[in-house]
Design a binder for these strands. Structure first.
Lengths: 149, 149
DNA sequence: TCAAATTAAATTGTGCACAATTTATATCAC
DNA sequence: GTGATATAAATTGTGCACAATTTAATTTGA
């Protein structure tokens, strides 16, 4: 393919990736609205439901997000009464995040979310698995061969 | 799969999609920096390089973005001297976007971008094509079966 | 032991995304 | 023609993402 052709929007891989991510987050909005969560907040809650008392940087490395994103997001979750934050006694630099009772309870409502989204995506099992594996490989590649630092 | 298992981050499709989109935009940053463009700005330029004099809503439907996103972005491109905006004489509500000489010229620099990104993605042709097709199908599904409006 | 280097969060500033509203123009119905 | 409706951008406000810097606590090393 000529260089010229590669600049066509249709030829690009990254644009469908960008558009699909936007469309997906958009689709989550009405599904998550009853839980009072945005999609990134839902991701943080998923991490905490697997086990709370984690540090900001542990959450960050799970989700590939930094403190600049997480600090204000966690403050909003705290203001909503879903989590509470405390300094680790052994190392006062570390902030640990716990679920409140309300945060634990919200998990019951969240159980319906994956099925609701699956209904919106309209992909069969094979497509979902293949897409997930391909995307994981892509993330791994981009994480591994670091830019130049 | 039990409902409980579906809440695991590892089981999710949308999280790898979200993470891959973030990682990709991050990878574009150093490649686009010499052109003075962000990734969304680069996408708008791709559309305009395929043909300028398009309306804000035409650009928006190509990229699945609304005027709330595009208006300030186009003002930044205008401030950078890459585009200019004018009201359509036949219908003063419509704003048409043209490339300036600098905007046209920037295309030459942009020709190197797809190859530079391909080097970062580290996927073979088969994977790229499959992923692109799967993502397009996903976007089409999410666009088609509208929420409820 | 104490100054230098390191680390974890928080802060600051920029640029998206998008819902909701507003403004300006155009079209339609009568 | 003129009021009602519709349409295109722009505006407003919220919440990410992330680079760069700052603050505070910890570790290291001469």
């Amino acid at each position: 393919m000529a260089d010229d052709d590669m600049l066509r929007l249709e030829a690009q891989l990254c644009f469908p990736l960008y558009a699909a991510a936007n469309a997906t987050i958009r689709a989550y909005r009405p599904i998550l609205a009853p839980l009072g969560l945005t999609y990134p907040q839902y991701l943080v809650m998923l991490v905490l439901w697997e086990g709370d008392g984690r540090s900001v940087s542990e959450i960050g490395s799970s989700l590939h997000l930094d403190s600049g994103t997480l600090t204000p997001l966690l403050k909003r979750l705290e203001a909503a009464g879903l989590v509470c934050r405390r300094r680790q006694v052994a190392d006062e630099r570390v902030v640990l995040v716990d679920l409140t009772a309300a945060g634990q309870a919200l998990r019951e409502k969240a159980l319906a979310v994956p099925k609701a989204m699956a209904g919106r995506l309209c992909l069969d099992h094979e497509q979902v698995n293949r897409l997930r594996d391909d995307l994981r490989r892509l993330v791994a590649n981009l994480d591994t061969d670091a830019p130049q630092d």
